[in-house]
């Protein structure tokens, strides 16, 4: 890959690699923009830059991750995602084979999600000024009428649900990057959750909050929601689904799985009397088969997220600014 200035080389590259992998009508028009009519309803839009090492990991790669990430951010408004755009920053000298793999993975992810990538941009930067490849995706979606989902709507008494086991993605990335060689290979959970969300809002339109616990993990996301809504949260350690291999890896590494990133899970908060129905809907979906009710929203001026531990204690699950630093003297 050579560093160009929008010349013939880049045009050729776009034609060959991107058109082939991301094939759809809007992209095929070859314009610098995608033209479409908005469907009725409220639109949502979200954008996310993807920077990850390693680019390929068990369960996925930066390509499908960049599609899933933005679809999920759009879907967490209760929306049906419509279109994506993608911006690439590629480091000079990046192997073409890898680029092809990544873009194909994006194409497949978009295809199977039914959310086409309809416009995009590619820049090549000098060697040393990038880290392989960075991908920024933007998504647009439409929210069905009657759905009102927002991070500030959690109310005391609401139930807190999670759609499956936590910590898989972060541990998969770390163990691949650092070549930790755990006995069991741990796979990223990266997945597009909009179909699950569609089922959820279809069955329980009263859902108050949805959020995907990506960077910072379950703990950080719950703290964000508690702060935004001005409430506290009470969760139960024994109810939080976690794979035994993830739990073992975290213990060995000394990491708290509550702070480890996920890419295919969501947190839902809904009125308690709808919780069982929502849980049943989630469990009926392949991406939510291990869903669980993990706790409840409570009144709390201090906005604590507190967890009843397996031993009956009540630990504050803090909002961590930086790393997990030991605190015991």
């Amino acid at each position: 890959m050579s560093h160009g200035s929008g010349g013939r080389a880049t045009a050729q590259l776009i034609a060959e690699v991107f058109q082939a992998a991301l094939d759809n009508d809007l992209l095929a028009q070859g314009n610098d923009q995608a033209l479409f009519s908005p469907p009725p309803g409220r639109l949502v839009m979200s954008t996310d830059g993807h920077v990850i090492s390693p680019l390929f990991f068990p369960g996925g790669d930066i390509g499908c991750l960049s599609v899933h990430g933005t679809i999920n951010d759009v879907a967490m408004a209760g929306a049906r995602p419509l279109y994506l755009s993608a911006g690439f920053i590629i480091e000079e000298g990046f192997p073409l084979d890898d680029l092809v793999r990544i873009v194909q993975s994006m194409g497949e992810a978009a295809q199977s999600a039914g959310v086409p990538i309809v416009t995009g941009d590619t820049k090549v930067v000098e060697r040393g000024k990038g880290d392989g490849v960075f991908i920024t995706t933007t998504g647009i979606g439409v929210v069905p009428d009657g759905i009102q989902i927002s991070g500030d709507l959690a109310r005391p008494g609401d139930a807190i649900l999670v759609s499956g086991s936590i910590g898989d993605h972060g541990v998969a990335i770390l163990s691949k990057r650092e070549n930790l060689g755990f006995a069991t290979e741990i796979h990223s959970d990266t997945a597009a959750l909009h179909d699950l969300v569609a089922a959820m809002v279809g069955s329980v339109p009263e859902i108050h909050c949805l959020r995907d616990p990506t960077r910072g993990g379950l703990a950080t996301t719950l703290n964000e929601l508690a702060f935004q809504s001005g409430v506290g949260m009470q969760i139960r350690e024994t109810c939080i689904p976690i794979k035994s291999e993830v739990s073992a890896a975290c213990e060995l590494l000394g990491l708290d799985p509550l702070y480890v990133a996920n890419e295919g899970k969501l947190i839902a908060i809904c009125p308690a009397d709808h919780a069982e129905r929502l849980l049943a809907t989630m469990r009926a979906h392949p991406l939510g088969s291990e869903s669980a009710i993990i706790g409840a929203v409570v009144e709390d001026d201090l906005h604590f997220v507190q967890m009843e531990t397996g031993f009956g204690g009540s630990r504050i699950v803090d909002w961590l600014a930086g790393e997990q630093l030991p605190r015991i003297c």
Binding site: F182, L253, L255
Partner: peptide, 23 residues
């Protein structure tokens, strides 16, 4: 003990903070 992983943690500084602790 699973020392393979711990060695990697020491070598690469993964959650292995240095400490001059007497404890």
């Amino acid at each position: 003990q699973p020392l393979g992983v711990l060695r990697t943690m020491l070598e690469r500084g993964i959650n292995a903070p240095l400490s001059s602790s007497a404890g």
